[in-house]
Simulated scan of single mutants.
Amino acid sequence: MEKNTYQTIRTLIAAIAAALIGSAVIMGNLLLAVITLILGVLISYFVRKNVYEVTEDERTYLVAGKASRTAMLSFLTIITVFGIGLLTMKNNFPEFTQAGFTLAYSACLFLILYSGFYFYYDKKHG
């Protein structure tokens, strides 16, 4: 299978899965949404195994790694600022205190996970 055909099929799979998951969410059927998601991933995986052209190389991994790191750091900064902002306003808006703690603890967990994976891959590849 050619790369262009693969990209077209992958786009169709994503569109169909999104429509089915959206319908399942509207109907309130979580099981159907999860099954659709799993089937979409599996079908995508098996379709990709039939591609004979090179779809990924070292440059793709480098760009994906840099994009992931930038997105992660941006998201981490945003949730940290919002979390601390909500916690500083707890006297005026006490109903947002729990949301502030949740965002702050999520940022801490995110940093712990990142550090753990960084050290693991540094030892594995370093």
Rank of each mutant, 00 (worst) to 15 (best):
F46A: 06
L31T: 13
L32N: 08
L42N: 00
N29F: 04
I26C: 03
V47H: 05
F46R: 11
V34T: 14
V25H: 13
T36V: 12
L32T: 10
I38M: 03
G22M: 05
L39P: 04
L42F: 07
R48F: 00
A24V: 06
G28Y: 08
I35Y: 06
G40A: 10
V54A: 03
Y52M: 14
V41I: 14
L32A: 14
S23N: 15
N50D: 04
L39K: 03
L37P: 02
G28E: 09
T36W: 01
I43N: 01
K49R: 13
N50W: 00
I43G: 13
K49E: 02
Y52N: 14
L30M: 14
A33I: 04
V25P: 05
A33R: 12
V47A: 08
V34A: 15
M27A: 15
Y45Q: 07
V41D: 05
G40T: 10
G28R: 07
I38E: 03
F46L: 05
L30N: 13
I26L: 13
K49M: 08
I35N: 06
T55D: 03
L32H: 07
L42A: 06
E53S: 04
L39Y: 06
V25D: 04
Y45T: 07
N50C: 01
T36A: 13
A33V: 07
L32P: 01
A33Q: 11
L39S: 02
I38H: 01
I26Y: 13
Y45K: 12
L37Y: 02
T55K: 02
V51R: 01
I35A: 04
V51H: 03
I21S: 14
V51E: 01
L37N: 03
V34L: 15
Y52F: 02
T36H: 05
E56L: 08
V51C: 02
I43C: 10
L42K: 00
V47I: 11
T55A: 07
R48I: 00
R48K: 09
L39A: 13
I43T: 12
L42P: 00
F46G: 00
V34P: 10
I43A: 11
S23T: 13
N29I: 08
G28D: 05
V34S: 04
V25S: 07
N50F: 06
F46Y: 12
S44T: 03
V54E: 13
A24H: 04
S44P: 01
